[in-house]
Write a protein that binds this DNA or RNA. Structure first.
Length: 434
RNA sequence: GGAAGGGUGGCUGAGUGGUCUAAAGCGCAUGCUUGGAGAGCAUGAGUCGGGGAAACUCGACCGCGAGUUCGAAUCUCGCCCCUUCCGCCA
């Protein structure tokens, strides 16, 4: 949410930002409503002042007659006030619904574009991995897809997954399960000394934190909802951001960095047909997320954004997965995001880079909604800034790991970083896998 | 799921219809005092919104939301959360 004063004073900037994001919002309507809101508020305040004065006069009145006279007079004021408050309610209802639709302003460096096809590559690793369109990994055989490879080694069972869990359901078995556990251990270790606070956070989360992070009210269709009214979070970001809701932070503690784990649930409404097979796009998965709260400075947000992006890149490098970083275009940004990098690892079977991490910052868009503040050096309260990026999402990353490490005979070389935890160097047809 | 009791400022806690403009204590800040600290004394201090150059001033905020009333921290209703006990349970 933006400050309504800022919207009033910078209508053109806000409008241009919304246009860049391809989001429709009626700012003129909002500002007209805000005028009415302010005008009405002044009237209501005036009546209240009158009431307060009368209330004192009644309490200190010397006679009953005097008292009755004031009460009779105040009955009219009460009626007028009631009508004004009623119209205030109506105005506020529409005002609020428009306010939560106003998108945050994208950074100047965000490219124009209509869809993720317009995202721009920023860098790739290894740096020498070919020109645009070139393949970073050459196979002298036809590489199998992750769907096939996981099935071949009995690492996953999609059919029984669907039988038990429904569409996009899956079981991970044998080295599929072991690799997820090894990856968890791997990412836990790598984040142990980076100054992040490890947390296991709720997936079952109440509405407020979804509104606060910007997933609601727009994303209702993307979320599972319980019969008690909570929602299942699609990322640990929601609960982690909710952690300090309505609190004032100590400036000396900033930046606060969290390494948050949770199961994640996504309805993937509207994604039918996309990635329908395998474990790339699923309803239920596990994710370690980086969440950061910092002081209200663009430079600090930008610096930490690079830092959490670099953290993700380090992991992919150690796993030996070729990747690229793209800057997301305006249309591919969420409501509250100022700027976003997606990190995409190479998928040989598709000859494409596919997303493994998503790194973004929000300035005070989320913290204003969540009411997370800190006291600045000048004593003033400010909304903190917030950022987040994936640390590691499983089982998606298995897709790129098995595809990039496959050999002509179908066996899979296990990345060095996972070998000790998995207790071997190769996945082939052996005991426990067939 | 059942029963009972609660939710008041940074904290403890008083307040059951009208100067509540929220007592008191603790803690905090500043000053006096001191060689320094403590104690003591004095003063001050919340958040959000409106008006104002400012001093200041008006309004809102006692878990949240509705209602009763000229007037609500206080009464009524709904919801949320906490505590204790019972039940269930990894």
């Amino acid at each position: 949410m933006l400050d309504v004063k800022f919207i009033r004073e910078n209508k053109d900037i806000v409008a241009a930002g919304a246009k860049k994001k391809r989001i429709e919002v009626d700012l003129d309507r909002l500002i007209a409503l805000d005028d009415k809101r302010r005008e009405l508020q002044a009237k209501i305040d005036e009546k209240r002042a009158e009431q307060n004065a009368a209330s004192n006069a009644i309490a200190t009145a010397r006679s009953d007659a005097e008292r009755q006279e004031i009460i009779a007079r105040m009955q009219d004021v009460k009626e007028t006030l009631r009508l004004e408050e009623e119209s205030m309610q109506e105005i506020l209802k529409e005002w609020r619904s428009l306010m939560v639709q106003v998108p945050n302003i994208p950074d100047i460096s965000v490219p124009e574009g209509d869809s993720d096809a317009d995202n721009k590559e920023v860098r790739r690793w290894p740096a020498q991995s070919g020109v645009e369109g070139g393949e970073p990994v050459k196979f002298d055989f036809e590489p199998k897809s992750h769907t096939e490879l996981l099935l071949l080694h009995d690492m996953a069972d999609y059919e029984r997954g669907a039988k038990v869990s429904g569409f996009r359901g899956y079981f991970l078995k044998n080295d599929g399960a072991r690799m997820v556990w090894a990856l968890e251990r791997f990412v836990q270790d790598r984040f142990a000394d980076k100054g992040f606070t490890p947390m296991i956070v709720p997936s079952l989360v109440r509405r407020e934190a979804f509104i606060g992070t910007g997933y609601l009210p727009q994303g209702e269709d993307d979320l599972y909802k319980t019969q008690d009214g909570e929602y299942l979070a699609g990322t640990a970001e929601v609960a982690t951001m909710g952690y300090y809701m309505d609190e004032t932070l100590d400036k000396n503690d900033l930046p606060l960095k969290f390494f948050s784990f949770s199961p994640c649930y996504r309805r993937e409404a509207g994604s039918h047909g996309k990635d329908a097979k395998g474990i790339f796009r699923i309803h239920e998965f596990l994710k370690y997320e980086q969440v950061v709260l910092c002081e209200a400075s663009h430079e600090e947000s930008a610096r930490l954004h690079e830092e959490i992006t670099a953290n993700a890149e380090e992991l992919l490098q150690e796993l030996g997965l070729p990747y690229r970083v793209v800057i997301n275009c305006g249309a591919d940004l969420g409501l509250g995001q100022v700027k976003k990098f997606d990190v995409e690892a190479w998928m040989p079977s598709e000859k494409k880079y596919r997303e493994t991490h998503s790194s973004s910052y929000f300035h005070d868009f989320q913290t204003r909604r969540l009411n997370i503040r800190y006291r600045g050096e000048d004593g003033a309260l400010r909304y903190a800034h917030s950022l987040n990026n994936t640390a590691l999402a499983t089982p998606r990353i298995l897709c790129q790991i098995v595809e990039n490490n496959q050999r002509p005979d179908g066996s899979i070389a296990i990345p060095k970083a996972l070998q000790s935890c998995m207790g071997k160097e190769t996945i082939d047809h052996g005991p426990g896998n067939r």
